[in-house]
Amino acid sequence: MAYQWDFTPVFANADLLAQGLVNTLKVTGVSLACGLVLGLGFALMRLSRQRLVSWPAGFVIEVFRTTPPLVQLFWFFFALPLIVGIEMTPLLAAVVTFSIQSAAFFAEVFRAGIVSVERGQWDGARAIGMTHGQALRRIVLPQAVKRMIPAFMERAIELMKTTTLVATIAYADLLFAANEIAQKTFRPLETFTVVALIYFVVITAFSLAARQLERRLAVSGESTVH
């Protein structure tokens, strides 16, 4: 088959692709930031001894870890606005879905990290008069977070890949831009190949950076929890 490859129509739309990539990074960044904060909250709730606090957190974590992200996204985009009676934009739906979803995964990372800190650290902190909150903030979390970094990085990369789902609710991310260009130029082969390569380069760069960081942490003598 002698197909004539022609990338010029794709490169002519480079600005669309660039805008798409920016939007992809935007969704990833915002969801990551919200997901981390929310995830820590979920983890602390789940570790609580009061069932009224720990069970709801456990339920949310389990639901968001065991249902497909695309179903969650559709639910937040098509169903939630009707229940709450608010206007939902694709960006808002995506950020809400991916924040809660990654929070559910981050919560388990946080929990594993906090649990992995030796009991003696807690006892020591309490012995010198710290409250539970102080011990957590000053003694336990700083040690736990360092061990959790590799798992966080892995999850962040997963999150960036998951954000492609927003294209299905018409948010102009990189994949959506590709769809548009493919239809406009009748060059789906070149367009989707280029976009796959863009994702590959960006995500590989992030994983390499993550690996580098992991190695540096290993050198400074902290084991990594997986």
Partner: peptide
């Protein structure tokens, strides 16, 4: 392994659906 782990699945599915048939009879 590196290629398929570092690209989103949805992009792969769409590539196989819209791009691959152009190369195939």
């Amino acid at each position: 392994v590196e290629f398929f782990r570092n690209t989103p699945v949805l992009v792969q599915i769409i590539w196989f659906y819209f791009a691959l048939p152009i190369l195939m009879p």
